[in-house]
């Protein structure tokens, strides 16, 4: 395959079967390898779409500063495009995200502003919104509310999956900005009667939630729960366990949030087996494991890895 530039090589990622983790020949799991994108994550799709939209609308012109709250991957994608297009990039990210993500961001020239760990991604959003108010000339693309985020998946990820898996019965992805689930979910619902759209939501320990109260709850503007069929809450231990199973049984080296999606996919697979129904379940491998090596997720016992992950954001 030949492309005019790295940006042109976005998408068209492989969908690979999981012969060992699939429960039977009638109930099969398929992994969409989004780590095969230009900067190594699914976030390249929304990042490229959001920048292209802002350029088209005249919001972004050469020399502009882009501001974005991000726990990593979106910032990395935006930083890469910003470097190629001549924008300054400022990321607001929680201080408890992995060292690799920070290095990658700086490598592509982004500036990082840390937000307190206790507030997680929500706090990063609040800090970014405050900065945007202080710097009206900065452009916040705002992945949580930017329709181009979901649209990228509606126009690319969804059609790619359906073309490769016409018999799809379930689509599973992690729930963050909700862009992947909203975009792919809407597309598949239009094309496939009764397709099930399944969210895997990360469940963190009390260290991460610590100090917040109910009034601070935050729902991304993109979120529409009518697109979802069901929603799983996946704890760190199960996410880690599934990430390791994917590596050990299928050879796929994925990030920890992928383990969360796999856990939900296996939950739906078990229900299909129990009901005696056939299923082709596609789930998103959001990124590779490289950025999480320093968390110790892949070393020692599961319990040790879980202890090391306590208090860290993994999705």
């Amino acid at each position: 395959m030949r492309f005019d530039s790295l940006l042109d090589s976005l998408g068209r990622t492989p969908l690979v079967g999981l012969p060992r983790l699939s429960p039977s020949a009638e109930v099969r799991l398929w992994a969409k390898l989004e780590d095969r994108n230009p900067t190594g994550s699914v976030k390249d799709r929304p990042a490229f779409w959001m920048i292209a939209k802002a350029e088209k609308e005249g919001l972004l012109t050469p020399g502009c500063t882009i501001l974005e709250p991000t726990s990593g991957n979106t910032g990395i994608s935006l930083a890469m495009v910003a470097r190629l297009r001549g924008y300054r990039m400022v990321c607001v990210m929680p201080e408890n995200t992995s060292a690799e993500r920070r290095q990658l961001l700086r490598m592509w020239g982004a500036e990082i502003i840390s937000s307190p760990a206790a507030g997680g991604s929500n706090e990063a959003v609040r800090v970014a919104k405050r900065l945007a108010a202080e710097h009206p000339d900065w452009v916040m693309l705002y992945q949580y509310g930017n329709e181009a985020n979901a649209l990228a998946h509606y126009e690319t990820t969804g059609p790619e999956i359906l073309a490769d898996l016409p018999g799809i019965t379930h689509f599973v992805a992690g729930l963050g900005t909700t862009g992947t689930l909203m975009g792919v979910g809407r597309y598949l619902r239009e094309q496939v009667p009764d397709v099930k759209i399944v969210a895997a939501e990360p469940r963190y320990g009390e260290l991460v939630y610590g100090l917040r109260n109910i009034d601070e709850g935050f729902i991304p503007e993109l979120y529409d729960d009518s697109v979802l069929t069901t929603r799983f809450s996946v704890g760190s231990k199960d996410a880690l366990r599934r990430t390791r199973e994917l590596l050990e049984q299928e050879g796929i080296f994925a990030g920890i949030s992928t383990g969360g999606a796999l856990h939900a996919a296996l939950g739906m697979a078990r229900k299909a087996v129990k009901a005696g129904e056939r299923a082709d379940i596609a789930f998103i491998v959001a990124d590779g494991g490289w950025k999480y090596l320093s968390t110790g997720a892949y070393e020692g016992t599961l319990e040790e890895a879980e202890d090391r992950l306590e208090g860290q954001l993994w999705a």
Binding site: G120, S121, G176, T178, E201, E216, R231
Partner: peptide, 8 residues
């Protein structure tokens, strides 16, 4: 999770 995470 449901109340606090992005996801809502």
């Amino acid at each position: 999770g449901a109340a606090d995470l992005p996801g809502g």
